[in-house]
Simulated scan of single mutants.
Amino acid sequence: MPDLPEKRSVLADKAISQGPGIRLEALPEGHLLQVMGATTTEGLEAHLSAAGIKDSAVRPAGYRQWFIAGNDMLSKALIQDLSNALAGSAFVSDQSHGRVRIGVSGPLAAQLLSKGTAVDLHPSAFPEGHAAVTLFGHISVQVARTGACDFELVVLRSFAQSLYEELEVLAAIAGSGTGQSDVTLVEKGR
């Protein structure tokens, strides 16, 4: 019987793109859990800490829904511990295999993203820590502000390549201001 192929990041061949005021990169596929139920962001953060899940962000993803995102892969045992702790109030669904995270950062990041979504990304309307599920063009994404000029997009794996390529084109235009590309590719790992 042939060996099954290894799981490979859908954006593994994408180099980091950066130019004046913009940086675009595929983030580690680590973990992405969807939690649905009667809990709160603070309650989820407490349960994550109790389960030993560190360096994770809890982001609203709709009515009584959250994404828990982080760079490290989680063991099935840790996910089960979280699920057990939330039993009776919320359900946990591991989405790590089906969704991809993309980072967009720099002073022109909000301007770039505003070309594809109707969400008001001005810091007064969309402060750090805020997240929204929306469309970017025709692709459903969750947009989260992770820093003053930093955003993270979560997209279904099957749309990740298309979204990334669209962002590369927009980054080239936003970074130059002239319609010509000043965006350079940086090797992974730098």
Rank of each mutant, 00 (worst) to 15 (best):
D3F: 04
S9L: 00
L11Q: 10
E25T: 08
A26V: 02
P28E: 00
L33H: 06
Q34N: 14
G37I: 05
T40H: 09
T41F: 03
L44D: 05
E45A: 09
E45Q: 07
A46T: 15
A46M: 08
A50G: 07
A51V: 11
A51F: 11
G52H: 13
G52K: 12
I53P: 00
I53R: 02
S56R: 02
S56N: 06
R59C: 09
R59F: 02
G62H: 10
G62S: 07
Q65M: 11
W66I: 11
N71T: 07
N71P: 08
M73K: 15
M73Y: 15
S75P: 00
A77K: 11
L78K: 08
I79P: 03
Q80I: 02
D81T: 09
L82S: 10
L86D: 00
A87W: 00
A87H: 02
A90T: 07
V92T: 08
S96Q: 15
H97I: 06
H97T: 05
G98K: 13
G103V: 02
S105T: 03
P107M: 06
L113R: 04
K115D: 10
H130T: 15
L135R: 14
L135Q: 14
G137L: 09
G137E: 12
I139V: 08
S140H: 12
V141K: 06
V143T: 14
A144Y: 04
G147N: 10
L153R: 09
V155G: 11
F159H: 04
F159A: 04
A160M: 02
Y164P: 08
E166A: 00
L167H: 01
V169M: 10
I173E: 15
A174K: 06
T178K: 07
V183A: 14
R190E: 15
R190S: 13
